[in-house]
Design a protein around this nucleic acid. Sequence first.
DNA 1: CTTAGGG
DNA 2: CCCTAAG
Length: 719
Amino acid sequence: MVFKKRLDYGYNAFSVSNVPRAPRSIRRRDRTKRSVGDTQICAFELLASLAGKLLEESESSASSNASEGRNHVSIGKDVVKQEIQYDDKPLKTECIEHVSCGASVVDSDGTTENSDNLKEFKHSENHAILGGTLTKMQRSYSEQTNIDLKSAICKHNVAYESFTGNLDGCSPNFGQLCDGICEKDIKLEREAKGLESGALAITNNCPLKDPLDLSMTFLAPVNSHRDVKLPSRSASVPNASFSRHRNDIKLGSRDDSRDDDDQIYRFNKLSNRFKASRPSTRIEDRRIGKLLMSKYWKAAPKLKDFEHCTADGGIKSLHRKRKTCYNYDNCQYDTLYKRRKFFDRNSMVTSDEVIGNGSVSNSPEKVKNESKSSSGAMSHGACEMSSLLTGHQASHKSNDSHVKLSIKSFRIPELYIEVPETATVGSLKRTVMDAVTALLGGRIHVGVLLQGKKVRDDSRTLSQTGISSEDNLDALGFTLEPGPVIAPPPLCYEEPPLLLPCGAAPQNFTSSLTTPVLDTKIPDATADPPLLTNSAKAMDSNYKHTSSQTDILTDQKLSESTALVPVPAMNVEVLSVVPANQKIRKSELAQRRTRRPFSVSEVEALVRAVEKLGTGRWRDVKLRAFENVDHRTYVDLKDKWKTLVHTAKISPQQRRGEPVPQELLDRVMAAHAYWSQHHAKQGKHHTGSWRITESIDKEQEEREKTCTKDLDLFKICSD
DNA sequence: CTTAGGG
DNA sequence: CCCTAAG
């Protein structure tokens, strides 16, 4: 719901002439949307970048050029360290935090306890799955991987912050800022990439002098491509708290697939989780959406939510109103919200871009390495991943055998998206991004699945776990798991299905999926409805949607493998377009209500009711005069009365719309004056003091008799 | 959920 | 009309 709304009102709204909208509302929407978008984007990007890295790395030897476009972010320990230093400062810290996780893991200095993280981890649901093949890799490779992962993480974070500006393009200032700041960094990265295909770009080089710098640095990488913003939320120290992050998101579960773009665009119903977490199922009610969102955020652990704040803060400085948030729940939410708005307004986030950057596109075939590290990087889970990696290394070092993992794609659990028909493609994209971001934005954990079972013991080595053996590689799967917050544990178990694809037919998966991904990297804008459908189906198969109000796709089901295959290069736009239509229509309703000017008869009914009941009992007014008119809420009536009073006060020349008989306006004024004085509105019917109306009442009655038909709609009480 | 108000 | 803070 939320998404829909937002989408609708995004800047797109402006373009949409059909739906009349109040500027204000539009603005609001924008805000909202944006907020969502930002987050989502981040998440999305995160995944994409992750995947991309993996691919790149794997390919690195093969093709360096291909990777150019991609963002490689390498985050060194340095980064982490700095982060620590700056912990005090929320804004700066955010980015760092994620990084830190990665770093800690990699470094193994490790103050961070992977075990803890891991434990939490298991609780988390699997929303996203990383499919990958596991292969033995050389040690050097593995090392690189780690680095990459880290870097990736950093990127994400960075991207997150900078992202908004860039994507939008709308907010030149912001973007410029970011760009300017990051340019150097970016260049470095690019160069690095160029040099080495798979090579890691080292951002570490960037000296971080102060927190601000850090943030900037991070941003830089992202900016170059404007890829994705990552919402950084992770806390510097991984905690159990993490587990609770953002499950609340409305996103339904979706799968994903490799292609960021393509898959992302699938629409699904609300995920089961969602329902579980939220009793209220009605999508119809926007409020629900709000609630969800709010809850979602609130639910998020308060530990280190600065990210949002941070992001904001970072941006904030740049932007006008942004407040700094230091706090958790409310702050987070608030900030996030605002921030989103901001983004929405200023920037159109093109999912494509994001996708392109993020998506793993490079070498489908080549890919082959460490998925873990990458996965770790992706999420907070990075820590986890790293831990695994570490263990693995230890076990294998002696043998010199490394496990090579390639994650071809990430499956994103069902996402529920609603967009009005009138929504623009851009808004759709944003919406998707938001959804994805929401999904991933929170603390993400990486789950390792072996033969469909989660490997929860992080302390075990790969060999001990059986991951090292080629036999098991097929059964190896990775999942990106959102924080357990809302999602109940059971959900986790649902994940397996998603995983299966990876594990079941890694090879096929890889080949089919990978390729598509590559292709898709940058969406052309060509739309392929079929694809969308497929994707949707795929998603469905993965998740059972308990609630599917608007989901059309729900019915469709495809085997994951199938889904994967069809996915070929799809353009985000395309996907978005198709699904959008279907859903949008349905969702359309969700948008702002269509304007329904009050007819004279309605006004009269209203006036009459108010005359009797006063102005403080709108509910009664509604019941009395509009009980059967569902589109008129008591709030509407109240608002209408407000406007009537205003209208009555202004000159006829200034009035617009269907003219209201002066007689009615007079009554409005009389009633208004009367009830204003009789503060004791409570209602009873007028007594002697209510003289003004007496005559009117009679008239009214007469009218009622004559106009009953007209007023049929309204339940007009004759009492 | 209703009210009351601001947007 | 929307959105929100307050009962």
